[in-house]
């Protein structure tokens, strides 16, 4: 856990944070509205005599003890719900694509956010679910089939190279590759893994710049990671916002029921773009979840 010490000055409550990191992650699910309602699903949860509570920031979301067998219940394989980390559900809820939109999920595997967005769109419109390799995207296909989601096209392409011929999108999810420190409650070994941070941050910048290029004017883009590292979060936003000179703006996030800390505007001697305070830095103790970073941006000019 000493890898976390570098964040001691930026966590809003260090003791709560460390205590949360020691706890196992709760199991969490969201209801598939294409198949059932939250009330009907609750009927099944009661039949199984599971202890659960609603997730305050996700409609139809439920939280269980970490060892609840939610991935093995019968309604799961009939597509009534999806098992996904609670904090990861926030990104799609914040982008909130509408029915009929043309949406791009740039780094889509394993597909929880894609499925969530496609169901939020009530099966209308279209979602392009893209990832780098065929092996990663195949897992996503299984999820879509199981949940009866028919408005998704899955593609294999480098997210930083998605080109003009893909046309423009009304909403874009850029949940980029990262050092995954926020997954420590699920797997503490993530903190020991060495990453080439320079390579990662350059890739993250390229993907966000390409998200901007693929977005229609007025479209929202969500940039997210599951890491605590400011270099992969606020610093990436700072570089891209600076480079785009006002054509991409930070937008205030509104997700009732969710707790978060404002994005940093200063890190290791560098002042960052002041609007980055609109981003959400979600520490594990805020919502009893993993760690996450989410920024909502709007393309205001081409």
């Amino acid at each position: 856990m000493h890898a976390l010490n570098r964040y001691q000055d930026i966590v809003d409550d260090w003791q709560l944070f460390m205590a949360a990191c020691e706890q196992p992650l709760p199991a969490t699910i969201w209801t598939n509205p294409l198949r059932t309602s939250a009330d009907e699903l609750e009927g099944w949860l009661k039949r199984y005599q599971l202890d659960y509570q609603s997730i305050p920031y996700i409609e139809g979301g439920f939280e269980f003890a970490h060892d609840a067998p939610v991935g093995r219940l019968f309604p799961w394989h009939a597509g009534w719900y999806h098992v996904q980390e609670g904090v990861s559900m926030m990104a799609a809820a914040i982008l909130a694509p509408k029915s009929g939109m043309r949406v791009l999920d740039m780094c889509a595997a394993p597909g929880g956010k894609t499925a969530q967005m496609a169901t939020m769109m009530a099966g209308a419109g279209m979602v392009f679910a893209n990832d780098l390799t065929l092996a990663r995207i195949k897992a996503l296909r299984g999820t879509l089939n199981r949940m009866g989601i028919a408005n998704v096209i899955s593609t294999v392409q480098d997210a930083s190279k998605i080109a003009d011929d893909w046309q423009q999108f009304d909403a874009i999810m850029a949940d980029v590759p990262c050092s995954c420190e926020g997954n420590l409650r699920r797997n503490a070994k993530v903190l020991n893994k060495r990453h080439n941070r320079k390579y990662l941050t350059q890739l993250q910048q390229k993907i966000l710049l390409n998200a901007f290029a693929r977005a229609k004017v007025g479209a929202n883009i969500v940039y997210s990671t599951c890491t605590f590292a400011p270099e992969e979060n606020e610093c990436v936003l700072h570089e891209v916002l600076t480079q785009l000179e006002g054509k991409l703006e930070m937008t205030t996030i509104d997700l009732p029921g969710a707790q978060a800390q404002a994005g940093l505007t200063y890190w290791q001697g560098q002042s960052l773009h002041p609007d980055i305070a609109k981003a959400w830095r979600i520490w594990p103790h805020h919502n009893n979840s993993g760690g996450f970073f989410i920024a909502k941006l709007t393309k205001v000019a081409a």
């Binding site: 065929l134 989601i149 096209i153 080109a163």
Partner: peptide, 24 residues
């Protein structure tokens, strides 16, 4: 397969591979 009738595929000029569309 069954897919939303409004899905329109771009004519990809690059090496993009389509893995799947709609549900089986």
């Amino acid at each position: 397969y069954m897919a939303n009738r409004h899905l329109q595929l771009p004519e990809f000029q690059d090496d993009t591979e389509i893995e799947g569309i709609g549900i089986s």
